[in-house]
Amino acid sequence: MPEPHDKDLVKRCLKGDQKAFEMLLDRYQKPVYNVALRMVNNIDDAADLTQTVFIKAYEKLNSYNDRYKFYSWLYRIAVNTSLNFVEKNKRQDLLGDRDVLQGSDVEDELESLERVEKLEEAILELPPEYRIVIVLRHFHDLSYNEMGTILDIPEKTVKSRLFAARQLLKGLLLKSGLME
């Protein structure tokens, strides 16, 4: 049986069908969580933000315009919620929290983990508006057009911001010794 389309699930949600919302949650919980995690670098905060995003999405579901892709709409809520959080917590110690980086206890992978750790730290050093384009393009494989829709900026701005973000990240990787 084919998977129901997002837009059909939204219609069912609007009629109060909890199962339909659960399907949307199962489909997008992980990507939304990862957007938040890459932006805030803390497992608990990312989980809280994911919860907020889905509550907001449910509350605003009747304002969703089905001319657009559901996930673009949802990502937009996730991006705005994460950016607002980052803005409010500018003074957070971005590099002080290692929660995110303890994904494996296999010692053999220590070196590779260390590289990933440095890379994640470098990403977190990017200003939020540059961090988000790296996250959406490289971790969520979104097109320039989709990114423009989500970030509410023209495609041309997406491209120039992505180019600048990559340049900044390159500098940070060189500085951290990840690249020579």
Binding site: I43, A46, T50, V100, V116, H138, R166, L178
Partner: peptide
């Protein structure tokens, strides 16, 4: 090389 380095970062499972 910067873009390739990013490929090493994996998605995390939500709690």
């Amino acid at each position: 090389r910067t873009a390739k380095a990013l490929q090493g970062v994996e998605e995390k499972e939500p709690p």
